[in-house]
Simulated scan of single mutants.
Amino acid sequence: MESSSADPAVVLARFLACLNDIWIKAGPPSYAEVEALSRKFATPVQGRTLRVEELKRSTVQRILSRQGKTLPKWPWVASLVTVLRVIASQNGVAPDDLGTLDEWKARYEEAWRRFHGRPRETPSPTGERPDTAAVREAAVPRRVPVPGVRPELRRLAGIRLSGSSQGRDQAMEEHAGLHALAGRFKTAGWWRRYWDVVPEWAELYLDLERAARLIHAYEIQFVPGLLQTPEYAEAVIRLEHGTAPETQINRRVELRMLRQKRLWGPNPPRLWAILDEAMLRREYGGPATMQAQLEYLLKVSYLPNVGIQVMPLGKGGYAAAGGPITALRFAEELLPDVIYLERLGGADYPTGAADMLHFGQVLDRLSIEAATPVESRDMLRRLCSGK
């Protein structure tokens, strides 16, 4: 039995059978659909920088029909898994049911060892130097079980709970779970000395944002608070709180700047922000303020822990037509992701399984539709020059 399991032909057949299984589970899609979607990708979601290869239909068909005699290369496998995860989410299938990239990497390494009779020693699959890849991987959080937190809160999502009494009871239970989650972190309540300028609906978010290892956001109206200059922050704060005392305006700006310190400090979170181009063309605070804000965005886009994509006007960002979305992910394995939907005068924290899946799909699509990070830097440079 052992010799059979170590037979290279058997190892290859089993590995390709697993790829065929998730192909079917994701749709199954057509070869043309997979090829077309692979061309649209700049970077996968999940905070990684692995560039997706073009998955030519002829190559995909040849490999999955087992016409090859060796294992496909890891970047190709990772690209296929990433594209199938997106297709699965679009078809209402939980992407993690297909397996995460980490799980597939472990499966690939084991297949390689059995196929070649030795451990695989290759450069990082991202194409980066090992030290750089380690920094990137450190930004990808892992999850551990948390007592008292429902496991179905784990996925990103988006449809609201029903208005039935059962739905309301479930919402109360799950929101209580979010508060319990926030209380687990030592950073909970770090903002207390600004209690007079923090609305109740934002308290939970400030606790969770401080503890997050990955912050994935789409913004349509304003530059995210974590990326605002002091002058820009003051301008947008005055839009909503223009009649407030000057001391409160200043305290709100000060709190926003304190939130940003984590991006520049040790062990910073990974911030992945998708910005609608329309917001970048609105001169909040006047031309000079907006010019400085654009230049600042260009500067921070080069930080290793910050990724910025711009959603071109021509794309519209229809996947998130309802408004801004922020997803928070934490370092411990199995901790639930948290969705935050801010609106005028309040915020929602959807926790239902259907909601989590829906918003995961939305953020996936936005990452595909938006300009790549390199293209986005070019757009920011053009905006800085007034084009």
Score class of each variant (00 low, 15 high):
Met1Ser: 15
Met1Arg: 12
Ser3His: 13
Ser4His: 11
Ala6Met: 10
Asp7Met: 12
Ala9Ser: 14
Val10Leu: 13
Ala13Pro: 04
Ala17Ile: 07
Asp21Leu: 05
Trp23Asn: 02
Pro29Arg: 06
Pro29Trp: 04
Val34Trp: 08
Val34Cys: 09
Ser38Asn: 07
Arg39Gly: 10
Arg39His: 08
Arg39Ala: 09
Arg39Lys: 09
Phe41Met: 07
Phe41Asn: 06
Thr43Cys: 11
Arg51Gln: 06
Val52Lys: 01
Lys56Gly: 13
Gln61Leu: 02
Gly68Met: 09
Thr70Asp: 15
Pro72Ile: 05
Lys73Ala: 14
Ser79Lys: 06
Val83Thr: 09
Leu84His: 04
Val86Cys: 05
Ala88Trp: 08
Asn91His: 11
Gly99Ser: 06
Thr100Asp: 04
Leu101Gln: 00
Glu110Pro: 03
Trp112Glu: 12
Trp112Arg: 11
Arg120Gln: 15
Glu121Leu: 10
Gly127Thr: 05
Arg129Phe: 12
Ala134Gln: 00
Gly148Tyr: 10
Val149Thr: 11
Arg154Cys: 10
Arg160Pro: 15
Ser164Lys: 09
Asp169Arg: 08
Gln170Ala: 11
Ala180Tyr: 08
Ala182Met: 04
Ala182Lys: 02
Ala182Gly: 01
Phe185Met: 00
Thr187Met: 04
Trp190Ile: 02
Trp191Cys: 02
Arg192Ala: 14
Val197Phe: 09
Glu200Ala: 14
Trp201Thr: 12
Glu203Gln: 07
Leu204Ile: 05
Leu206Thr: 03
Asp207Trp: 00
Leu208Arg: 03
Glu209Ile: 01
Glu209Asn: 02
Ala212His: 07
Arg213Ile: 04
Leu214Val: 08
Ile215Leu: 03
Gln228Tyr: 01
Thr229Ile: 00
Ala233Thr: 03
Glu240Val: 12
Thr243Asp: 15
Ala244Ser: 15
Ile249Lys: 09
Val253Ser: 10
Leu255Met: 07
Arg259Asp: 10
Arg259Glu: 11
Gln260Pro: 05
Trp264Cys: 13
Pro268Lys: 06
Leu271Tyr: 14
Glu277Asn: 06
Tyr284Leu: 03
Leu294Gly: 02
Glu295Leu: 09
Glu295Thr: 13
Leu297Ser: 03
Lys299Arg: 15
Val306Trp: 03
Val306Ile: 10
Gly307His: 07
Ile308Cys: 06
Gly314Thr: 14
Gly314Lys: 12
Gly317Gln: 05
Ile325Met: 11
Thr326Phe: 06
Glu332Ala: 03
Asp337Ile: 05
Tyr340Cys: 05
Leu341Asp: 05
Leu341Phe: 08
Gly352Thr: 08
Leu357Ser: 14
His358Phe: 13
Gln361Asn: 12
Gln361Arg: 14
Val362Tyr: 11
Ile368Cys: 04
Met379Ser: 13
Ser385Asp: 14
Gly386Ser: 01
